[in-house]
Design a protein around this nucleic acid. Structure first.
Lengths: 338, 338
DNA sequence: TTGTAGGCGTTATCAG
DNA sequence: CTGATAACGCCTACAA
């Protein structure tokens, strides 16, 4: 069956395309009788205006903003997404989410798809993609804001926390509790967030005249499974640590789980500290001491900035917003001083 | 942000639109040097061919399939999404995810957005939207498959499990363990999955000559928070149950958490059974006995069916696929017989 | 009140 | 190799 177009309706009705168009769009100044005639033909022929063609001429960017994240399975991203969504809804705007599994190529691909679909703007939690790729986005002034990453040599909107300082503070907390042998469970070093946290950890150690031991820096996937696996390695360490400082709650929880499975108690046998403060960590059964990032607020702020750029036009200037973090004391860290 | 078009590239490069177009589509018969020149301009300018205009002339859809879910924060959906993504990737196809927060209006809106963007097809975990809306999608033969829901009077692709039978089986399991006072923690009754599970629960009770008590059927939000809140109500019941049968792992975990916070032990004081078997439930600290749905496989199968429809053309016939479920015995249910 | 003509951003045909 | 030119289906001044 051939697709029926506005031209067909025009031909059948005997009127012109534009008159038909007016009827479709319910414009005034159409004689009632012709309107009815055209309408009846439209109905009987089940004609549907082609949205594609329509949006081509209307240049209608759809009221959608794109969000690209590395792992929707990680509650950190899910909670950020919730904030984004809530704030976007206030502006009558919908969110489309793309998941990259920390694969650089996917990040790039989704950015392209979003551009092609004319989203209003995008929020990028794309830690892997190259700086220059982001730069080119910024150059064409495509509305976008970065989450949890930084781009060198480019002023791009971003909202994040200070990973370095917060992890330094967290490690110091452990040290103050009397821990001297602290392993750091991290993930992909190419990811800004993890690299910064690692540096913060090292800085705290140095500040307290503790040696940075390479074997104490263990790398895993940023997931429960990753944490579980890497915990095996900490048990193999010749000099067993008293505390585990994880770069991410999921890693911490995974490590915890392995330890539980092997009969260890927390915090009695090992102290553990996480990072992110995902909802799960507050469960009594987990009770993880961790460092809070205001996830929902990060999402909200990202949308606010994005819309400032969208509405601000050419006199908009780049915004970098850093939220404070906070250590959430729960039950997974033992005080060795008492 | 000015939209940059093929015309701009043509102007900048000094070549014509058609030559640029050829380069874009990687046609042969373009001199290497001009190709390179144009390509470099395209890169530096971050030009993206407008998919709208392109599909207008090509009458083609983009290689994207849409996925609409009720709550990305629920690991059930996240894990289904992972399966969908993995299988879609094999077909060189990208996923765009939309989150509705269980709001019917959002479900409708996102379906429209996806259609407007001419996605190849969509996978719908949209429990709230009206049957007739799904029907109209099916009528125009838009490729789509339903997850975790059913539509009456319409034959639509769907993949799910048998909620009724599996919950009946789960409740029977509790009864076999000697429990007679079993509360059921459910959620929105308008949602097919919850309604069916509730019926399954009731059926098992009746089958064993146990009375269905209305006060024993408690409704909450399908989340940890919801479970936490509703657990307060179970403590208020004049006749305290020995077992809690939750329609969803999150609810179970939330209830568990409240109980822990109030000094109760599981399974000593209460037995708890969940539904879904999300990854979290297998943590030693949670150790929730639950009913498994093969989430990843459900996602995979949905894509398989979707592509059968996409490729099958007019001789494709509707597929309904139900996966088996399985009770996963862990440590949250006490055997009263011993 | 109705119709004409030009354009939205691409692709595709066919001369040059 | 390269570049006019005509679609694709619709909207919208501007004319009539």
């Amino acid at each position: 069956m051939e697709k029926i177009t506005i031209r067909d309706i025009a031909k059948i009705s005997g009127f012109s395309k534009s008159t038909v168009s007016k009827v479709i769009r319910n414009e005034p100044y159409v004689k009632k009788s012709t309107k009815e005639k055209i309408l009846s033909i439209i109905r009987s022929t089940r004609y549907q205006a082609d949205e594609i063609a329509r949006s081509l001429v209307l240049k209608k960017t759809i009221d959608v903003i794109g969000l690209i994240v590395s792992d929707i399975t990680n509650p950190f991203f899910a909670e950020v997404a919730l904030g984004i969504e809530a704030e976007a809804k206030k502006r009558n705007c919908n969110i489309i989410l793309c998941n990259t599994n920390y694969i650089e190529d996917e990040e790039r691909k989704y950015i392209d798809i979003l551009i092609k679909n004319r989203v209003l703007g995008m929020i990028l939690a794309t830690p892997k993609i190259d700086d220059k790729y982001i730069k080119s986005l910024v150059d064409i002034k495509y509305p976008c804001v970065l989450i949890a990453r930084k781009v060198n040599n480019v002023r791009a909107n971003r909202v994040s926390v200070n990973y370095y300082e917060s992890m330094k503070e967290g490690t110091n907390y452990l040290i103050k509790k009397g821990h001297k042998k602290i392993v750091h469970l991290t993930s992909d070093k190419k990811i800004f967030g993890f690299a910064s946290r690692l540096e913060g950890y090292k800085a705290a150690l140095k500040q307290n005249n503790l040696k940075v031991i390479n074997n104490y820096i263990l790398k895993s996937e940023a997931s429960i499974k990753g944490g579980y696996e890497i915990a095996k390695e900490v048990l193999k360490l010749e000099e067993r640590p008293t505390a585990i400082c994880a770069a991410d709650d999921l890693i911490a929880i995974g490590a915890m789980d392995f330890l539980f499975h092997n009969g260890y108690k927390i915090p009695d046998d090992f102290s553990i500290m996480g990072y992110d403060n995902i909802a799960m960590s507050s469960l009594k059964a987990i009770n993880l001491t961790t460092i809070n990032q205001p996830k929902f607020e990060i999402g909200k702020k990202a949308i606010e900035i994005l819309f400032q750029q969208i509405n601000g036009g050419s006199n908009f200037k780049v915004i970098e917003y850093l939220f404070p973090t906070k250590i959430i004391e729960r039950g997974s860290v033992l005080d060795l001083n008492i």
